[in-house]
Design a protein around this nucleic acid. Structure first.
Length: 166
DNA sequence: GGAACGATCTGC
DNA sequence: CAGATCGTTCCC
């Protein structure tokens, strides 16, 4: 599932400003996975992960940053894909402004800041008429993403569930 | 009720 | 390389 999101386009259109980017790096998290928030079962924080696919699971990281996932499992499954990096398509200037003019680089925290995503967006529907959506119909079929270990985790360190395209 | 610990980022 | 910073989770 994490592979399928590679090349898809994340669009957030709010306050009349459209920000869009091509998803180039993801990580997979499942219920079987000790590194996943859903591993220890459903809690108030991760409830969205156990909901229907196509919704946004946003959580606070290290008390400072926001990180966004796309729920990819059926109801009750508890699986999601962490969005780690995008290639800016629309609103690159706005992204830069939100980033405090710091260089826009890889990383889930930076991605959320650039797209203006925070805790209020937890549970948002990406497949409805809301301000944010994922255009996977425009996804270019990717050949051989780079596969590697996930970043910043302490459990299941050797599980190669990070996927990256250029 | 308390303590430990992050799916991170930045600046020194 | 360490500090920021706070909600969530787990244990007593």
């Amino acid at each position: 599932m994490a592979r399928d999101l590679l090349g898809a386009v994340l669009v957030v259109e709010r306050h009349g400003i459209r920000v869009a980017g091509r998803i180039i790096e993801t990580e997979a998290y499942t219920t079987d996975d000790p590194a996943s928030h859903s591993f220890r079962g459903r809690t108030p924080r991760n409830a969205v992960m156990f909901g229907p696919a196509g919704h946004l699971y946003v959580y606070r990281s290290y008390g400072i940053h926001w990180c966004a996932n796309v729920v990819t499992g059926a109801e009750g499954d508890g699986q999601a894909v962490l969005l780690r990096a995008v290639d800016p398509l629309d609103g690159a200037d706005e992204m830069l402004r939100r980033r405090g003019r710091r260089p826009l680089a890889d990383g889930p925290g930076k991605l959320c800041q650039a797209f203006g995503l925070d805790g209020d967006d937890d549970g948002a529907d990406l497949c409805g008429r809301g301000p944010m959506r994922i255009l996977d119909d425009v996804a270019v079929q990717q050949s051989d993403p780079i596969v590697g270990p996930r970043v910043g985790i302490t459990r299941a360190v050797d599980t190669p569930w990070r996927f990256r395209i250029s």
